[in-house]
């Protein structure tokens, strides 16, 4: 099933650079402030990052919850700081005592992270801490994919808060690993596998909503 993704552009310098470097097949990018004027009908998945104006998202939270209630999918990467995402709770930073506290662990085998090594997520050029620096407390019934050192959940899937599916990751844009310059690392598998998972997930949720 081929589906369309819509990604909100936060509008700053880093977002511009990302747009220029990313493989955007299947993705439509719109400025965050265009959200209320955008027809979301053609899109199955809404991609949002923590660099977006979260006060603005809060003001327009109904757009996001309605989108989800149609059985669609939201992928959020970043730190939540306002209450705009169904089931979402504010980001909690981790108090770090040693680099081991930043160790990324796979909690349950999942197609998004299939073949991805924990160390490749934990370390970037030998330095830990790029993948996640804290966590979001879980909504009820959420499925945990990754943790920090077996403790705090850093990536989860929430199928209970809405009719759709929400994936929340506490670090950088999980779709940002497309066109990654670290192609020799297993993290380059994440973005295409995430895209594949969204397509399969959508075909399941949309059947549930229609039946």
């Amino acid at each position: 099933m081929t589906i369309q993704f819509i990604s909100l552009n936060a509008g700053g310098v880093f977002a511009q650079t990302r747009l220029e470097n990313q493989d955007s097949t299947g993705f439509t990018h719109v400025d965050i402030y265009e959200l209320p004027y955008t027809d979301l009908t053609p899109y199955a998945c809404l991609v949002i990052g923590g660099m977006c104006d979260q006060d603005f998202l809060f003001e327009h939270k109904e757009i996001i919850s309605s989108f989800l209630d149609e059985g669609k999918i939201v992928v959020f990467s970043g730190n939540l700081v306002t209450d705009w995402l169904p089931g979402g709770r504010p980001f909690v930073p981790k108090e770090i005592k040693s680099f081991q506290d930043y160790a990324v662990k796979i909690e349950s085998n999942h197609p998004i992270f299939e073949g991805v090594l924990e160390d490749d997520m934990t370390f970037n050029k030998g330095v830990a801490g790029f993948f996640a620096r804290g966590h979001h407390p879980l909504p009820e019934g959420a499925e945990v994919l990754l943790t920090l050192d077996g403790k705090e959940p850093i990536t989860y899937i929430d199928r209970q808060s809405t009719n759709g599916t929400i994936l929340v990751h506490v670090g950088f844009d999980l779709f940002g690993y497309m066109g990654s310059n670290d192609l020799e690392k297993t993290t380059s598998r994440i973005s295409p596998q995430l895209k594949q998972w969204v397509e399969e997930e959508y075909s399941k949720t949309i059947q549930g909503v229609q039946s």
Binding site: A10, G12, G50, M51, C52, D53, Q54, N79, V81
Partner: peptide, 9 residues
């Protein structure tokens, strides 16, 4: 103020 998580903190 831009409302990102970085500005928020």
């Amino acid at each position: 103020y831009g409302g990102s998580s970085q500005h928020h903190r």
